[in-house]
């Protein structure tokens, strides 16, 4: 998309509820990074975007990553840019956090922690769900 398209704001389009579900650990597969890039692109279309982190997806948000040794990009820093893209609805599932011994303090961005039932109803009210 060109800068001009990127710059379109408001527009006439319908706003739908988009949920991006992240269930994979970072680095081991390309899903986490690809999912993040899709979310950043989707931000240009002014939709109602939520990002959800469940299962191994919660590992994407761990703070203190140092990827020099494995020579890949540390895209965990990019989650902190989401706010600037007006993507502020980040949810993690409590069950997934507990199973991995993680708490909110371990994460690089502010999130809303939901229990499984809350996550389920959030998922049920979406217009579009895209999974990574």
């Amino acid at each position: 998309m060109s800068d001009m398209m990127d710059d379109m704001e408001g527009g006439e389009g319908v706003v739908k509820k988009f949920m991006f579900v992240n269930r994979k650990a970072p680095h081991g597969t390309v899903y986490a990074l690809e999912g993040l890039e899709v979310v950043l692109i989707s931000a240009a279309f002014d939709q109602d975007v939520s990002m959800v982190f469940t299962d191994d997806g919660v590992y994407e948000l761990i703070k203190g990553m140092n990827t020099k040794g494995i020579e890949v990009k540390d895209f965990s820093k990019t989650y902190r840019a989401l706010e600037g893209y007006d993507i502020e609805k980040l949810y993690v599932e409590k069950t997934s956090m507990d199973a991995r011994g993680l708490t909110e303090d371990d994460l690089i961005v502010d999130v809303t922690v939901l229990d499984s039932a809350e996550m389920a109803s959030l998922m049920a009210e979406q217009d579009v769900v895209i999974s990574f």
Partner: peptide, 14 residues
């Protein structure tokens, strides 16, 4: 800081 090049409207805002 963020490991990405910002989209233009994000750049403008920042």
């Amino acid at each position: 800081e963020y490991q990405i090049a910002p989209a233009v409207r994000v750049l403008t805002k920042a």
